[in-house]
Amino acid sequence: MRRVLALLLLLALPALAADRPPRSGLDYATPGVRAMQADDFANPGMLWVQEGLALWDRPGGMGGTSCASCHGRIEGFAGIAYPRRDPRDPDKLMNLETRIEKCRLDNMGAPPYGYESRELVALTAAVRHQARGRPVAVVEDADAIAAGEKEFRQRRGALDLACAQCHEANAGKKLRDETISEGQTNGFPAYRLRWQGVGSLHRRFQVCNQAVAAEPYPLGSQEYIALEWYLAKRGAGLLVETPAVRQ
């Protein structure tokens, strides 16, 4: 009987964890990192945002079009929510990065930048930065979010670990010298001290996959976009911090 009770308690634990309000990675960061993020002139991520703002207006397409020629001011994008489904092909999930690349190819007639290129990272950071201080906007889509949650709970790699085992069950504890965060995504694209630059969320996913000795999915893959979708939903209520500073 006692064993059954213990099992029930164990089963109840994830549910309890889910009831806590989400905490941004900022809460788990060291004071030095927090100070860097708080000051726009000490936050190196702002360099990428500045570059992204310049790219927004830079003509690159056929007929000299830029993002601004169709979309106007970048400030108008403060409320956008990604990932979402491709309206023309609802089976396909798109995040902001793949959407921008598609827009360049289909609508601008410009070559895509490449997923982790400095330009695309800068442009996505600039667009996401417009929403800084607002709650993360999520498109409701039960199927996509469920697919993402499956990725989140899937054990993988030689260490046979799922995202949830560190970032849900053990958030706040130490992994060697570092505090495990909840793995929230509200700061991305983020400046990572270890990268000495701003990187996308999918690059961060790859690092996490490699850390458990799993083969990472490609940047911009459907699996990662579904995971990104679920994580946005999971962090509902958090404020956008882009460009965040993380260790």
């Binding site: 002139f41 190196p44 000495q196």
Partner: peptide, 9 residues
């Protein structure tokens, strides 16, 4: 005065 430059160094 604060000054920062984007550079790989």
């Amino acid at each position: 005065i604060k000054a920062m430059a984007m550079h790989p160094m």
